[in-house]
Amino acid sequence: MPVAWATLRRTWTMTGRAYPWSYAVGCLLTGILTIGLSYLALHAVGGGTVAADFTARTGGADYLGYIAIGAGAFMFTVRMLLWSSKALITEQRQGTLGALLVAPAGRLPYLLGFTGFALANTVVEVGLLGGFAALLGITLPACQPLAALAGVLALAFAVFALSVVLGALMIVAGEAHISQNTVFLAVSLLCGITFPNSYLPEPARLLAETLPVTSAMDVLRGALSHGAGLADLAPRLLTCLALGAGYLLLGLLVLPGAERRAIERSY
């Protein structure tokens, strides 16, 4: 825990001094534009109603609530992945990866420190996005707080597990943008962010089930939109945790080899 806390404090201090407010505003605008444009499309194009097909697939006609949950979860996922997965490649770019590897600090606590900072930072941004949604009259009347909290924690665990695998891939490849953007695109298309993944062809739906974000989204939507309790959501919650544990184990197994490969490439 001392390593995780020290990493969190260092990252918080560096970010507060180095990153301009425009960066945070730009990140927030993605979610705001998603919700805002969906609001305009519903009322200006759809006449305030949704197709019966959408209602049948989602179990409700609250299109804007569906979009708001998806936009908030996607912002959460992207921001968490950005910070957590780029921890090691940032050290590599700064020339400090070798020093980090020989330091008497475990890799998992170090990564947890980055993730703790990302969680604190992202919760604030998602809260602001929720405030914007509230200004448009978007509400979640059937919210189950305990189940929703479980969904958020499951999503955070799922994203952290993915970030460990992605971080190992990035330091081996020596690049971040293509790897990260590929994962972001896959999550946005497959995991039911802005439309039900039941619209996807069968192979894509099967691929979506291999990503723990998909089951985490099911838990969040069930808790926030349909008032489902923990007992009802337990199967999807367990699926998310099992997949997340698998990704985390895979990441921790391949990370030492990825670090060695990254050091070899630097010489």
Results as ranks from 00 to 15, higher is better:
L237A: 01
T77V: 14
V165M: 11
T55D: 12
V164F: 11
F195A: 09
N181A: 11
G246L: 03
L112I: 12
V187G: 06
M14N: 12
A133E: 00
G229P: 03
A56H: 15
A208I: 00
T30Y: 08
A186L: 15
T115V: 10
T239L: 07
Y199M: 12
T115D: 15
R265V: 04
C191D: 07
I32N: 02
F132D: 08
A87F: 06
A168Q: 04
T15L: 09
G227Y: 00
V78Q: 10
P2W: 11
T7C: 08
R221P: 09
D218R: 14
T239H: 09
P104I: 06
A6W: 12
L190E: 05
L37W: 05
L97Q: 06
V78F: 01
L249N: 08
A208Q: 03
L146E: 05
A99L: 10
L153S: 09
L8D: 01
T77A: 15
G167M: 05
L108G: 03
V183H: 00
L252D: 05
G72N: 03
A245V: 03
G244H: 01
M1G: 14
L40R: 13
V102R: 14
C240R: 01
G46H: 02
T7N: 07
S22N: 10
F184C: 12
I69K: 07
Q92G: 11
T182V: 15
G95Y: 05
L166E: 12
A231S: 14
V126W: 01
L169F: 07
L243W: 00
T96N: 14
P256C: 09
L230M: 11
T210G: 14
L162P: 06
N181R: 13
T139P: 11
R10W: 10
T90N: 13
A52I: 04
A156D: 03
L248R: 02
G257S: 09
L119R: 07
G60F: 05
G222M: 04
V219Y: 00
Y267K: 13
A142G: 07
Y66F: 13
P201E: 00
S198M: 11
A148M: 08
A103P: 09
A18E: 12
T34F: 13
A134R: 14
R260M: 04
I35F: 10
A51F: 04
G70I: 00
G95T: 08
S225G: 15
Q180Y: 02
H43I: 01
Y63T: 06
E91C: 11
L128R: 12
M75G: 07
T49D: 10
L190V: 09
T77N: 05
A262E: 01
G227P: 02
V45P: 05
L153F: 12
R9K: 15
V164L: 11
S179G: 13
G60C: 08
G251T: 00
L190R: 08
V3R: 09
P104W: 00
L28N: 12
V123E: 03
L153C: 12
A118G: 09
H226Y: 06
Q180L: 15
L82I: 13
F195L: 06
P212M: 07
A150H: 03
V25P: 14
V45A: 15
A168R: 03
I67E: 00
P212S: 13
S85L: 04
A52E: 15
L250G: 10
A150Y: 01
V50Q: 01
